[in-house]
């Protein structure tokens, strides 16, 4: 069992209808977003998924936690094929894979308190001792327990993102998908949230997939890195190796485009 990767993705294809080019009558043509993606994520790994906008990184993530259904190919979660499972069959699995969203302002219900937000998935999954688990989740992300009574708008960006993380870890998942969760934050809150994620991965034995366009952040956090370009995997290797000797031309282009905070004005 321990040899089974937590995710085994095989030749995954996914397309969306292209409404901009829909004829007046009849179905819209389809744009293929994922063009045959294969990927294995071993248990306990921290994998970075990078690529430019339109590379399909968020779509891949959403397919992995089955917020959307792929056209073809297979997604196996701990050996179980979840590619086309219906919502009823997915519900018990949802406890085990959770997602943290990019924009906490739109992914946290503004009319519910932090406590109610974190308790949401716990109640849905029929957990006991909900209140105690909410406290525990808050402790894990370093927010004081009094924050249970607060509303999202009363928190800073970094604190809101911690609430998103607390909600994700509350159900004790095996896998968490984090989609650009630090890109809206100031560098200092960004550093805090990344340090927190590192610590949680260690303490809770999480497997983490971390979607980002920022290779500097990936370098710090992830053991392996997948580079996506136009719906295809162009490189998948150990992070260290990828930065030392990038294989794909697109990876080199991405690396070369990062403005490092040093005095090299020849760069532009």
């Amino acid at each position: 069992m321990s040899d089974t990767p937590i995710y085994d993705i095989e030749n995954l294809r996914l397309s969306f209808p292209d409404m901009a080019h829909k004829p007046l009558l009849g179905p819209a043509p389809r744009v293929e977003i994922l063009k045959g993606i294969s990927l294995r994520i071993p248990r306990g790994d921290v994998v970075g998924i990078v690529g430019g906008s339109g590379s399909g990184k968020s779509t891949l993530g959403r397919a992995m936690v089955r917020l959307i259904e792929p056209d073809s190919g297979a997604i196996r979660f701990e050996g179980q094929d979840i590619t086309h499972l219906g919502e009823d069959a997915l519900r018990p699995l949802r406890r085990r894979f959770q997602m943290i969203f990019q924009d906490p302002m739109s992914s946290l219900n503004p009319r519910r308190t932090v406590g109610a937000i974190i308790a949401g998935p716990l109640k849905l999954q029929g957990f006991d001792r909900v209140s105690g688990r909410v406290d525990q989740a808050l402790d894990h992300v370093g927010l004081p327990r009094v924050f249970r009574k607060r509303y999202p708008h009363e928190l800073s960006g970094g604190q809101r993102q911690r609430v998103g993380i607390a909600r994700a870890i509350a159900t004790e998942p095996d896998f968490i998908l984090a989609d650009e969760i630090v890109s809206g934050l100031d560098v200092s809150s960004q550093a805090q949230v990344l340090n927190l994620l590192e610590q949680l991965v260690r303490e809770l034995g999480l497997t983490l997939a971390f979607i980002s366009h920022d290779l500097s952040v990936i370098r710090r956090l992830c053991r392996h890195t997948v580079v996506l370009h136009r719906g295809e995997v162009v490189e998948y290797s150990e992070t260290q190796a990828l930065f030392d000797a990038p294989q794909a031309a697109y990876t080199r282009e991405l690396l070369d485009a990062i403005p490092l905070p040093d005095l090299d004005q020849v760069w532009v």
């Binding site: 560098v187 550093a191 990344l194 500097s216 952040v217 370098r219 710090r220 930065f243 905070p261 040093d262």
Partner: peptide
């Protein structure tokens, strides 16, 4: 963050 120096940053 600075990818050339992952330990010193963040």
């Amino acid at each position: 963050p600075k990818y050339t120096d992952p330990d010193a940053s963040l």
